[in-house]
Write a protein that binds this DNA or RNA. Structure first.
Lengths: 201, 201
DNA sequence: GACACTAACGAACGATCGTTCTATAACGTA
DNA sequence: TACGTTATAGAACGATCGTTCGTTAGTGTC
């Protein structure tokens, strides 16, 4: 990795953790330069525009999400276990990644849902892709016979996303120490509703 | 209502709808003055500081929420019907209120969850109060015998909030036209899980 | 008609914003 | 060691930020 690439990654690291606290939209090149002990112009040269920097942060977030949440879960055999692994990793990924201020992606989702442009598109595509992964993982649990054949996997992905969002809000804003537990309770109930009943289990 | 109060309300109306699009944190006194055809200083005098203006917007949001979502629902007799009325009003309240850019409160929740101060406190208290209302409404449905006595009403409020959040995101960011229907499906299933079973219903 | 009070204005403040330009280091290759 | 390339710095730009100040209208009261 060349020197430039190395610096760029260091900037991105700092920007990533900053964005997690104040939001991608509130990122400031001046403050970021100060934190990385660079000049504004030197830092700026790595991205060409503020928007490009913000996009880079969003892409970085998606990549880390895939590395921390999805990839490990996919080492589980397909089925309900894999789906549950995703949820468990998902709930704790802001602690694994360098995200002192919570999930960048969901914050950006609320921030840009009304502002057309590349940033909104990036967030939208990322979340659509995630929904697809969730739905497909659920579909595999149908194949394995763990979920009922008539399960609406898109509805399931929808509800999973809801569980995640409220868990984040409860933990971060409302300081609820039981948020994760509540999220898992919700997940188990949700899955049980679509599970194929086995006697005595 | 005196002249001053009238102007202040007009400013607040505009700020409210602006905040819904760009977020409470991104409100700008200059832009707001332009939109209301006032001078920056004239507008500023009504609030004394930007933070005070932001607080006023958040309080306005909570008041409108109570007027549009809660008050009408409480005209229903206590029980599941009332709970469902809250959810239905809740899902559509951004259309009733002047909220072209979605729910201000939830956007602010994501924005300020990491920034201590009066704004975070205001949002947190508002959302805690909402959770309380939801839980108490559910508790009344236990009293009427519609929900099981051992229902965890706080867990239920938690999950309701999740359903709302993902519905917002699906509708606003992902442009999903079925978001509200999915939310109601989720609600009905959630309630059914805690309902007292009646034969043939 | 003088007076107090409120509402709004216009100008200016220092700070910070994103961005541009030019210059200077540092580095890789010959 | 010289040269081209890349990486970073420094200074300045015009714009906008929140805020302050002094002043001017409008309004009701004695």
């Amino acid at each position: 990795m060349g020197k430039g690439e190395q610096t760029r990654q260091a900037i991105l690291d700092e920007a990533f953790s900053m964005a997690s606290c104040i939001g991608v939209g509130a990122l400031s090149i001046g403050v970021l330069a100060e934190r990385t002990r660079m000049s504004k112009s030197g830092l700026f040269a790595h991205f060409g525009s503020k928007e490009e920097l913000q996009l880079a942060v969003l892409r970085e977030a998606q990549q880390r999400f895939a590395d921390i949440v999805l990839r490990p879960a996919f080492r589980q055999p397909r089925g309900l276990g894999r789906l549950r692994a995703i949820v468990v990793n998902w709930l704790s990924w802001t602690r694994e990644a360098n995200l002192p201020g919570g999930c960048v992606i969901n914050a950006a989702a609320a921030e840009f849902d009304d502002q057309p442009g590349p940033l909104r598109d990036e967030v939208k595509n990322g979340l659509l892709a995630l929904r697809r992964v969730l739905a497909e993982t659920a579909a595999k649990a149908v194949e394995t016979g763990e979920l009922r054949p008539n399960t609406d996997v898109d509805q399931l992905a929808f509800e999973l996303e809801g569980i995640y969002q409220v868990a984040q809000q409860s933990r971060r804003l409302l300081d609820d120490p039981h948020a994760d537990r509540r999220a898992l309770v919700a997940f188990d109930r949700l899955v049980a509703d679509h599970a194929i009943l086995r006697e005595k289990e």
